[in-house]
Design a binder for these strands. Structure first.
Length: 440
DNA sequence: TCTGGGGTCCTAGGACCC
DNA sequence: TCTGGGGTCCTAGGACCC
């Protein structure tokens, strides 16, 4: 079973920890420049304030209902997040931090009969230790755990919900919207409806190959996941593959000097993030936009990418390149609302080889040893894979049923069956040997 | 007047290689 | 009716997520 822990109204809950007077009162937290409402307490939600609402449209409502408004404090939220995550980790060692306020749990070692009580205990401890209320959903796959979490928030008195494959699940699936499923947004829901799939139960019952034609392998995976066949596994914490820093301006900016100053700040922060994960970057992208909401203004948005001569994490080098891109993009006849920088093509700094037990040669590693059961072999493979992924950035894994990893020549490998890469395009993509063999 | 910021993954298609 | 087969790498664009 998988679990999904989600902090309730996270940013609002963080503010409440430090100001208990806010409890049971309507509270919202605002985005940069206090432009949008990005978090709402339940009390604010029941006043029909939508997520992402522009503040200026709700000024009257806020005044009338005495809603407390707060500018966002990401340093605080980040700190609270790590407290919640490390508390969780204390109870469940195998977990994936999915976002600032969510984590997936691997609950395979828990007893299914007592899982509800166990989760409830965890929920209580998290609250006791951090002051943050959470909801926990449990299901046979990540997608169903995600759905269970929604149920926990809506229909459970204690904030925990366990979903199993049953008639009950069928009735739930037939009574919710396609958009309630993790990964389905309006666009895909419309496409699915156009072929007669109107609710998640229809989706669960349909031919996966048919779904793939409409919404790619991602949608195909959903079909299996809804049936209780896991296609998505917990992912290890890996380094970011791109780093973005961007801000909207409070006022419109026209002159290059101010744009440059903002860009310099963003670059400095991006470079810090880059170094903090011990990566180097190969390319830089800068983008600028005018205010898209001002329909009467002349609109301009553009971006450009430049490569570095060598991989770098040096702020000065990145800065120079960023200014060069800006020179290319800047047009003096527009008013700008936003500027940002993206560091791309990130590579991990090479680390020393710790595990010498395996040999790497020509993008091929061998670790020659016999195992009695596949689980042991699988564990060792995962360790090696992690190690190699960290050191080399990426790899292709060839494998055979003998438990010996080998590259046996191009023509000898049966298509779509034996090549790791092929699994990437299969709904059952996984890096776990046991899973691979189970499927093939 | 005022409208967030930061990510990931997948596909198709072209260039190129052996 | 016939055309070789199998592959890598890269990119743009379009989805989706919190």
């Amino acid at each position: 079973m998988y679990g999904l822990v989600d902090c309730n109204n996270f940013y609002v809950s963080c503010e409440r920890v430090f100001n208990p007077l806010l409890r049971n009162k309507p509270v919202v937290v605002l985005s940069n420049n206090d432009g949008c409402i990005i978090a709402r307490s339940n009390e604010a939600k029941s006043l029909d304030i939508p997520m992402g609402a522009p503040l200026h449209l709700y000024k009257t409502l806020i005044k009338k209902n005495k809603i407390f408004t707060y500018s966002s404090n990401y340093t605080l939220y980040g700190d609270m997040s790590s407290r919640v995550m490390s508390s969780l980790n204390y109870f469940v060692p195998d977990m994936e931090i999915y976002s600032i306020d969510e984590a997936f749990l691997d609950l395979r070692k828990f007893n299914e009969k007592t899982i509800l009580e166990e989760m409830f205990k965890i929920k209580q401890f998290i609250y006791q230790w951090t002051g943050i209320p959470v909801s926990i959903g449990v299901g046979p796959t990540k997608t169903l755990a995600k759905l269970a979490n929604k149920m926990a928030k809506k229909h459970s008195s204690n904030g925990v919900y366990v979903l199993t494959i049953s008639e009950h699940l069928r009735s739930i699936l037939s009574n919710i919207q396609l958009e309630d499923i993790w990964g389905i947004s309006k666009g895909w829901a419309n496409r699915l409806k156009s072929i007669g799939i109107n609710n998640p139960l229809d989706l669960q019952q349909s031919d996966p190959r048919k779904i793939r034609k409409i919404v790619s392998v991602v949608g195909e995976r959903m079909v299996y996941e809804l049936r209780g066949n896991p296609c998505l596994s917990l992912e290890n914490i890996v380094d970011k593959k791109s780093i973005t820093v961007s801000r909207s301006f409070g006022n419109m900016v026209n002159d290059k000097y101010n744009l440059k100053q903002a860009l310099a700040n963003h670059v400095a922060r991006a470079a810090e993030k880059l170094r903090s994960q011990d990566s180097l970057c190969g390319e830089i992208c800068v983008f600028i936009n005018t205010n898209r909401f001002r329909k009467n203004d002349l609109q301009y948005s553009n971006s450009a990418i430049l490569p570095f001569d060598d991989l770098t994490d040096n702020t000065n080098i990145i800065m120079k390149k960023a200014f060069k891109v800006l020179d290319r993009l800047y047009r003096s006849n527009y008013n700008y609302k936003k500027i940002g920088v993206i560091l791309l093509n990130l590579k991990q700094r090479k680390k020393d080889v710790k595990n010498k037990n395996y040999v790497i040669q020509d993008n091929l590693f061998t670790y020659d040893k016999n195992y009695k059961n596949i689980a042991d072999a699988s564990d060792v493979c995962m360790e090696i894979l992690d190690d190699i992924n960290t050191k080399m950035g990426k790899m292709t894994l060839f494998y055979g049923s003998q438990g010996i990893v080998k590259h046996s020549g191009r023509k000898k490998i049966e298509k779509d069956k034996w090549r790791m890469r092929s699994f990437y395009r299969s709904p059952f993509y996984t890096t776990n040997w046991a899973d691979i063999l189970k499927v093939s």
